[in-house]
Structures are given as C-alpha cells and as structure tokens.
C-alpha cells in the first residue's frame, strides 16, 4: 500500500506526458501533411510549367485556351489587400493594446475586452458583405470613380477584422512587462504616455512583433472578404482602387468550380497554395528571428 501510490502517480505522470507529446505531434504532423500534399500536387504542375514562368509571367489565365501562369498577378492582389489591412490593423491594434494595458482602468477595460472578442467572432462572410454593401458605397461618395469591387474596401474591412488579434496579443505582451519597469520610468518623471511608449512598448517589442506577424498571416490568408468585395479577376496591380483577385480568391474560385480533377487547371490551386504557404512560413520565420535577436540583446519577454 505504501508503495502503490507513488507507482500509480508515476504511471499517471507518464500517461499525461504521452498525451501531451501526442497533442504536440498531431499539430506537427498536420503541418507536415499539408506541406507534403502541397508539394506532391504541385510537382506535376511544375513539370508542365517552369518555375521561371510561374514567377515571372505577368498574366494569370490558367483556364484560358492560351493559359498563362504568373503567380505574381495573384500575389499582387494579396499584397495590396494585405498592406491596406495592415495599415489599419497595426496602428489601431497597437494603440488599442497600449490603451488597454497602460491607460484604461477597471470598468472601462472590462467592457472593451468583450467587445473586441465579439469583433473577433464575427464570421468573415459578414465582413465581406459589409465591405461590398456598406464600405464601398461610402468610399464611392468620396471617390465616385471607385469600382464596385475594389481592394481598398476589402483591405480596410479586413484590417478591422484583424485589429482584435493584433490588439489582444500585443496587450498580453505589454502586460507581461514587469511593473518595476513602469515604476522606474514614472519615478524619473515620465508621463503615462511617455512610460507606455518609450519604456513599456520597447520592452514588449518582441511579443508585439509576434502579434504583427500573426496579423500578416491572417491578412494574406483571408479569403472570404476579398472573394466577395475585391472582385475575382486576376490583375497585376498594386493600386488599391482597382478590383483584383488574391491567391486565396483564386483557390476558392477554382476549388468550387468544375475543373476536372487532376488537370493542369486543378493543379494550379496547389501551386498557388504552396506559394501562399511559403510566404506565410517566411513571415513566421522572420518573427522567430526577431524574437531570437531581441533575446540575444538581452531584452525581456
């Protein structure tokens, strides 16, 4: 009896260890699986279309009689809508995070947080129609020449959608900054704003940068809003006042269409998805690099 308890506990302990390792493994295997499928399905594509043409062609017309496969066309749409979105989400998200963590007290804080979470819970299809039917008509009052489908409106609404993610993660990072650092700044005579911006924000920067990268990933991966409000014709442009398709829009279009399974047209969606996957991976690695560099320089968090 005396020895049974520790033994039972040890068994329990190792069972939990396996469970946790299994959970971690599942996430890793899923990622590897996705990567394997993307690469596997793209290989036949790249046997028919050279990588060089894929990267440099200025047309994307894979389903035309004379197909062209310039992924840059779709990437330009993704880049433009994402830049508009980040131009909204990063400043607003950062300001909101600073406000919540450094300025807001008690009841105000407690009421803003749930509203933010509500915003994060709105289905993206709702955002998409909001962009098309509310934001675009409003923008057209200022710029009558703006087409009904455009990257600007989709990007702005996408930015609003991303604010809660950026704000929430940034706020966590800011609040993790030890109080002693704030006290040090205040004791020197800093105002709230000076302490927040010049001491707390730099101290939390690696965490805030991670929040930004999550925002970038959300922006380049966002599908519904751009599919509804930005138009679906591929167009090489960095002008937000034009309609254009993004990588994700194209994938939706083809995946739900009647392209024969296994055809070249079908394989384009894997090639496009692979491009998107690599782009997102690059951003995540960049974020990791920033974090590591900060740690080497001895910053906290």
């Amino acid at each position: 009896m005396a020895t049974s308890l520790p033994r039972r506990r040890r068994k329990m302990e190792s069972a939990i260890e396996w469970l946790l390792a299994g959970a971690a493994l599942a996430a890793i295997l899923t990622t590897l699986g996705i990567a394997a499928v993307l690469v596997g399905e793209s290989l036949p594509f790249f046997r028919s279309v050279s990588l060089w043409r894929f990267l440099t062609d200025t047309q994307w017309t894979p389903l035309f009689a004379d197909p062209r496969f310039g992924i840059g066309v779709l990437l330009s749409g993704t880049a433009t809508s994402s830049l508009v979105a980040l131009a909204v989400a990063i400043p607003c998200g950062t300001a909101l995070a600073l406000f919540l963590s450094e300025f807001a007290v008690g009841p105000l804080r407690e009421s803003v947080k749930p509203i933010l979470e509500l915003l994060a819970g709105v289905p993206t299809v709702v955002f998409g129609y909001f962009a098309l039917d509310v934001v675009t008509p409003l923008l057209q009052k200022a710029w009558p020449a703006l087409p009904g489908f455009n990257l600007l409106s989709a990007g702005l609404v996408m930015g609003v959608m991303i604010i809660p993610y950026v704000a929430s993660l940034s706020e966590d990072a800011l609040r993790a900054v030890p109080m002693s650092l704030r006290e040090g700044a205040y004791a020197l005579g800093a105002t709230r704003l000076q302490a927040a911006w010049q001491v707390v924000f730099p101290a939390a920067f690696s965490g805030v940068a991670a929040a930004y990268v999550l925002g970038v990933s959300r922006a380049i991966g966002e599908t519904m809003i751009v599919a509804i409000a930005a138009g679906q014709q591929p167009r090489l442009t960095l002008n937000p006042f034009e309609p254009a398709a993004t990588v994700t829009t194209y994938i939706v279009q083809v995946a739900k269409g009647d392209v024969p399974h296994g055809s070249l047209g079908y394989r384009t969606i894997f090639a496009a998805a692979l491009a998107l996957f690599l782009l997102a991976l690059t951003f995540n690695l960049a974020a990791d690099w920033i974090r590591r560099r900060q740690r080497l320089r001895g910053r906290i968090s």
């Binding site: 030890p178 002693s180 650092l181 006290e183 040090g184 004791a187 920067f205």
Partner: peptide, 10 residues
Amino acid sequence: MVFQKPNPFP
C-alpha cells in the same frame, strides 16, 4: 528613486 531590484530600461 532607486528600487529594491535593479530595473534598468530595455
């Protein structure tokens, strides 16, 4: 003011 634990800024 000088605090209990050193609190240099980042």
